[in-house]
Amino acid sequence: MITRMLAGGVLAGFAAGLFAALLHFAFVQKLILLGEQYETGALVHFETSDTQAPAASSHGESETGHAEGDAAPDGESPFKRNALTVLFAALTYTSFGILIVAGFALAEHFGRTVTAREGMLWGLAGFAVFQLAPAMGLPPGLPGTVSPDIGVRQVWWFGTVLATATGIACLAYGRSLVPAVLGGALLAAPHVIGAPQLDQFYGVAPPEVAAAFSANVLGVGFIAWAVLGWLAGRLWSSSAT
């Protein structure tokens, strides 16, 4: 059972990760590079009296937040940088693949059957859990924009993932009013509590680029997760004994 879960999850995740990397280079990477040009000062969005704001400094720390991108791999060859992006896309989606297949196994344990079609629905739910719901509080951050302290963001991120996953499971598999209400409450809870926010904004990248970045990240994630779920469901159902 463990072999079946891991083999299916790793295979589907790795393949979906390579596809996600392809979409990343088609839609997202150019926006990251553009954001970094503003971050490093190669491009300037506005000449104002605030241009020496913390985000433009080399260390990037401030009392209220943390400038993005200060640890961007400067001086690395584009090939190495992009190869690492492909590798980590494969690794990230492999982890998603393993988790989604663990979910299939749990569903099967309770008497549900998962096929490629259900798998795709699971994939879209996974997108909502791991990307869409967290993005509503913490939008994907373009280099050159600012965000609150990493520790509190990670706590909120993991809490949101857990609450959203449980909430969607309650809504999808609950059979009475109680799980439906509980599911709705769990979906809402992270956003009622609220994601960590900055007191003021001092990002140096244009909001237009940051908005395009966020939208493209979510679009790529939506498609990659649909592929992941379909593939994982297909492998899972074909490996059923």
Binding site: H24, V28, Q29, I32, H66, E68, G69, D70, A71, A72, P73, R81, N82, L84, T85, L87, F88, A89, T92, F130, Q131, P134, A135, L138, P139, P140, G141, L142, P143, S147, I150, R153, Q154, W157, S214, V217, L218, V220, G221
Partner: peptide, 23 residues
Amino acid sequence: HAQSATLHDAAHDMRHATGFPCH
């Protein structure tokens, strides 16, 4: 999510592009 400098630098673009909290 691991904040080790080496891992962070290697995974940098993908973390941004998945919407994970990054540095």
